[in-house]
Write a protein that binds this DNA or RNA. Structure first.
Lengths: 193, 193
DNA sequence: AACTATACGGAACGCCCGCCCCGGTTGTCG
DNA sequence: CGACAACCGGGGCGGGCGTTCCGTATAGTT
């Protein structure tokens, strides 16, 4: 490996600060914010950002990967929980909430623009696997209709987040409720709760 | 009014050609295509485009308004048709199909970017009204759940189009089927058909 | 304290795109 | 056919943004 010497203290500090600020800004404003803006808010120069992350995509990817890893962990822990149906829909709601709270992540989940898929392929596949596991368990338990796959579910989660955000605070969760009801097998609507 | 003289023949020809080409290109590639590209494909200069349409938004709005008017007409004609539930879901599927076939329209329906809403307010409200009519009829007939409004339905139609496009040809219509099932009142799933 | 590798800041570059402008062309009317 | 107004084309301007470069500052070491 090319580990010549430990990085300087200020370098690590700046790197962490850029990561932190970028996370907040991307979450609040989406991916379209200029790098200069992030640099400014972090109190560094644009060059510093590019030294730590060779490209804007790389910066964004680093953040998203971390986020996705956390989500995957959540999915795995839910997979072993009691009721498979409950676990699946809990995860669905969790993912949508995450997408609403984090605009940049939402855009990524909705497949908009960036080739995060390519760079974060490993991380994303991990999520895909965990989701597939959750889904098949729920399907075997008869809590989710059989004619859907992980790809459809993932798209639906991203879409729900986008739509909920678009509708704003009016009727919160309505879209997600409808979609979840649509995912249940015929004649298996759960009462409110 | 300022109607001094009828426009020249070539002016009308170019205007029509620009409109036609812009429609195709926006439908195929979305709103992000440069004006220069549209001008090139139409065989005119960029200046010509801007003479007929003062702004890119104006060009796009002109196209979308025409499209929305057609859709509204369809909605109104369905409203008087036999089964209200059938009419509602027919329109839902029609709108989604339109959104899939027309990328630019889909982006507009999904509320992405352009302030078409502001410019096309009149036309859009017309659609809103027709949709609301269709919806309440279906709800009164017990074909659609009561806890949704036109805004949610409109968002769902746009979202379905986006998701279907994203998933490509694999599992066509799956997302729309799920969403429509979610829109039905509890315990009222229709068998395949 | 002096020295050097490392890191910093921000000006500068290149590219894209919406929009404007002007010299040349072409339709139209007497 | 000739003249004039309407219209055309495409080069150019301005602003935004991702990325690079280089003179300067500073952390770490002796």
């Amino acid at each position: 490996m090319t580990s010549g010497r430990p990085p300087r203290a200020d370098a690590l500090r700046n790197r962490a600060r850029v990561l932190e600020v970028a996370h907040e800004v991307f979450a609040a404003e989406g991916l379209s914010v200029p790098i200069d803006e992030i640099a400014r808010r972090a109190g560094v120069g644009a060059g510093t950002v590019y030294r730590h992350f060779p490209t804007k995509d790389a910066l964004f990817t680093a953040i998203v990967v971390a986020r996705i890893d956390r989500i995957s962990a959540r999915a795995r822990s839910l997979a072993t929980a009691g009721d498979p149906g409950q676990a699946f829909f809990d995860f669905f709601a969790y993912m949508v909430a995450e997408g609403i709270a984090n605009k940049g992540l939402g855009e990524a989940l909705a497949g908009a623009g960036v080739d995060v898929e390519a760079l974060a392929a490993a991380s994303d596949q991990e999520l895909q696997r965990a989701l597939a596991d959750l889904l098949t368990r729920a399907q075997r338990a008869g809590a989710v209709r059989d004619d859907v796959g992980p790809r459809e579910v993932k798209a639906l989660m991203g879409g729900c987040a986008t739509m909920e955000r678009q509708l704003g605070a009016s009727a919160p969760g309505r879209i997600t409720t409808i979609t979840c009801d649509g995912l249940r097998p015929p004649g298996a609507r759960t009462p409110p709760g």
